[in-house]
Design a protein around this nucleic acid. Structure first.
Lengths: 161, 161
DNA sequence: TACCCTATTTATAAGGG
DNA sequence: TCCCTTATAAATAGGGT
């Protein structure tokens, strides 16, 4: 019992729900601790089959504030979105490689799967560069988050008073 | 050494950065595990003084997909926003009560103050329903409930020991 | 179904290089 | 600053009620 669980979809509905509730609770606690200890902004959003609404931390309004911030960042970076995506993937690949090197001495099987993972990431990267879906998504998010911005400003104002 | 850390802003820059990197890494790992094990969508977004860019999980594009979903949800619920806030506040109050009941056996003084707090929250809540400053009060209530939550967490922890 | 109980696993604060 | 180690704290899988 209490054995290490393999990181894969849990087939049993009941077990999955139990572990979902446990881990969701812990995750939210962790986000709370991280933001408190480090004095930073952060949020977590989770959609499950167990709730019709998304479960978020902190409150939905706080999350919207964080999303507004994320939007601002995206807006600022919009002009070089693809470049950013490239950088991000390069970073991911590099980190995978670093991880791979660390594991080399210890675990050959893991190493092989990481190499495979790197190849997959690279393929995704190519697909992404040729897709214009992202821009549409970005525009949609932009429009919607304008509403969120004014909402967040209201909350900011009230917080200051 | 290795003592339990108080849940509060870490004043030391170096220690804060160390703990930030450790906890951010673990948090992302946890989001990964949760979404994989339960087959659900989820994301985490963190802004820190240590990175000019927000740090997210999973990739920025996946996060945007999740945000789009969140946006859709907000849109759908827009017409009954106030009702949602009401539901949310009711839920939060109920959760505080549950937590409070769990703590009853352990700490009477804290219990009293929490009960008082709940009354205050309830009054605010009633006002909220009849007021056009819904958002302001909601924010305040949320802040209060966060205090209660962290207080309750502390007590939970100390009760366990 | 949801809670409670513990053996294990995992996370992490300190300390050292 | 970053990485490694290790003792302690926290999370959690599986089982019981």
């Amino acid at each position: 019992m209490r054995k290490k669980v393999k990181l894969a979809f849990m087939v049993s509905d009941s077990a999955r729900k139990i572990t979902y509730n446990k881990r969701k609770t812990s995750l939210i606690k962790k986000v709370n601790e991280l933001t408190t200890l480090c004095g930073i902004d952060g949020c977590a959003i989770v959609y499950s089959e167990f709730h019709s609404e998304p479960e978020v931390w902190p409150s939905p309004w706080e999350v919207q504030k964080v999303l507004t911030k994320f939007k601002s960042y995206s807006e600022f970076e919009q002009g070089k979105k693809k470049l950013n995506q490239e950088s991000y993937l390069r970073e991911r690949i590099m980190k995978s490689k670093e991880q791979l090197m660390k594991l080399e001495k210890n675990n050959w099987e893991t190493e092989k799967s990481l190499i495979l993972f790197q190849c997959l990431v690279k393929e995704d990267f190519v697909d992404t560069l040729n897709s214009n879906v992202l821009n549409d998504l970005a525009w949609e998010i932009n429009e919607k988050l304008k509403e969120i911005t004014s909402k967040a400003n209201e909350l900011d104002t009230s917080a200051t008073n």
